[in-house]
Design a binder for these strands. Structure first.
Lengths: 191, 191, 191, 191
DNA sequence: AATGAATGAGATTTCATTCAT
DNA sequence: AATGAATGAAATCTCATTCAT
């Protein structure tokens, strides 16, 4: 009847994948349990509601993400160095486990308020890099917020392209080109 | 620009807004009826199911969208001319009614199969423009799929930025800069 | 499939009876629906949760109760007159619909906070009668709170006795005796 | 008075309190374990089911209760003597540990079948005293069942009053007055 | 045509109990 | 013996849809 084996990991992985594949609302607790190989109740030992599961999954992965970002930042100096390193890091993460990447993209809107100006917030991070580059005269004056949005678009959309089969895997192979596009963009005001 | 979108009535408008605000699965018929100021039953006089409502909403707007795009294409020749015109058209649509724009983005994945190679499909449209420009030697040879993704990113992400308060309204005011970024990107292979 | 007939009354009556018979926690939505002859969902058209149903049932009946009390109070003057009238009114209510009476007794503890010193609160009412009688020297000085508790005990416990088959129905037939007991109690300090 | 109640341990105490505070059905095994500072599994080492825990708690306390009553009965003769002693015993028990008193009141209806005519059954006890007093002509002829209910009301309701903050603690201080009320009640038929 | 009550299927959640560790 | 994860059954609740009025 009872089968006390540690299933927390399996539950969370199943949830992560299903949320990405079918959306959060499109995934039932029953489906998560079923894919994890447990009964529905098992889920509630680890998370007190479906919503709680979503949040836990988000913050857990978000923090790993943030840690990676911090590491990259600490190891590189100046936009020309840092941006390519970040692009490669993002793309590497996507290639390694696109579910994690996509899940963060998927639910960030709903949870964004709680993370708004957190320096682990990737958008915020890019924004800081841009502002710092402007301040240090590494790039011409420009609307930092708009540039940030454009840079984010350059990084995220190839991942979306891979997902929908338009862009070839692995994503890292496109890192050099995307990095160049990013750097060119930053210099756009020059001419 | 003429209003590109017409809404049959309060029900459709309420549904559109709620779908954007909370997602399709996250919105109940009751909520739609309530916001529209009608009862649940009344909704079924106009649409035979929720799914039908979603599809009707999508195709109705998608066709107006497509018509707009055709108009723009007919009036412009060559990437250098066409791309800025399209960017302005997209941004204009967003400024005029961001719900429509976001709704199309939101459900296109689910319904795109049925319009896959339709030239009103924004991604497909961009892809064709890129391939044609390459064919006509207007731009250097490059991975058309990747470039398409990047161009899409440059257009969509500023809209996302506006939504989350990072980029200033109206979006059209950023059209010239974004257009330049797009054109530069297309020439990136040159050097 | 659907059968839109007004079932609100049936649902509330079924709930009232079951709550009295098996306790609130001991009664499931399914049982209520089943006794009312509807499906479980029907309940949620009228009350947004089980808890809400309990509260609605309580306040609805509590107000009828309160109205009755006010009527009796308005029609009688002085303890000697009022107390017997109230006892008879209580007992009459019990005989007429013991479910209502018992339900109020059953859940009042949980909801008492919201009704604490409301003058429709039967205990509060008795308390006021006692204090007024003392003030007007109709009865000797005494601990009004204790006397109130004792009077309440004299009225409630016969009803409990009826419920458990110890005291014979109808309860009204015992009203004269109980009233005498109440009045004697009030005079107890005299000697 | 000697502590009339012994609790095997933390689990039983936690259960007793929670059952009184939230009702038996309203209390989960998890809550009991949590308040007792043990895990759910540990609970099943001592009691084979929740129902078993309730019964154990009831009978354990009920027997101590019964023993106390027997002691009181053995030491007193005649209503005039016995009733005041019992009132004081009840009130003393309440003051010492109102949880025990209330728990017995709470579950007796569900479990009383099994101790129906047991003389530790408080209602049955009072009933016997009344009938014996009538038989011995210590009090006038009267409806023993009704009188029993009224006496029970006189004893129980002050305890309820204390619980809801209407009557002042300790309850014993009211014992003389309540006893007099009980004895007067018994003589009510005289006049 | 409109209304809003009810259906019925399924979703989420709770919980007494069991059992591998 | 203790722990706490998992079971399985049942409870509460949701919601697209139907239909009597």
């Amino acid at each position: 009847m009872a089968r006390p084996v540690r299933m927390k990991g399996a539950i969370e992985r199943a949830a992560l994948e299903l949320f990405v594949e079918r959306g959060v609302d499109g995934t039932s607790i029953r489906e998560i349990a079923s894919r994890a190989g447990v009964t529905e109740g098992a889920l509630y030992r680890h998370h007190k509601s479906k919503d709680d599961l979503v949040r836990a999954l988000f913050f857990e992965n978000y923090h790993l993400f943030a840690a990676m970002i911090k590491r990259v930042r600490a190891a590189h100096d100046g936009v020309e160095d840092l941006l390519p390193a970040l692009v490669e890091a993002f793309f590497g993460l996507y290639d390694e486990d696109h579910y994690v990447f996509e899940f963060i993209m998927l639910v960030q809107h709903a949870l964004l308020d709680e993370v708004k100006t957190d320096e682990a917030n990737p958008v915020e991070l890019v924004s800081r890099i841009v502002r710092e580059a402007i301040r240090k005269r590494q790039v011409p004056k420009q609307d930092a917020n708009l540039t940030t949005a454009l840079l984010v678009g350059l990084v995220i959309q190839p991942a979306v392209g891979v997902r929908y089969g338009r862009v070839k895997r692995p994503l890292v192979r496109h890192a050099p080109f995307v990095s160049r596009a990013c750097l060119e963009l930053l210099q756009l005001g020059k001419s």
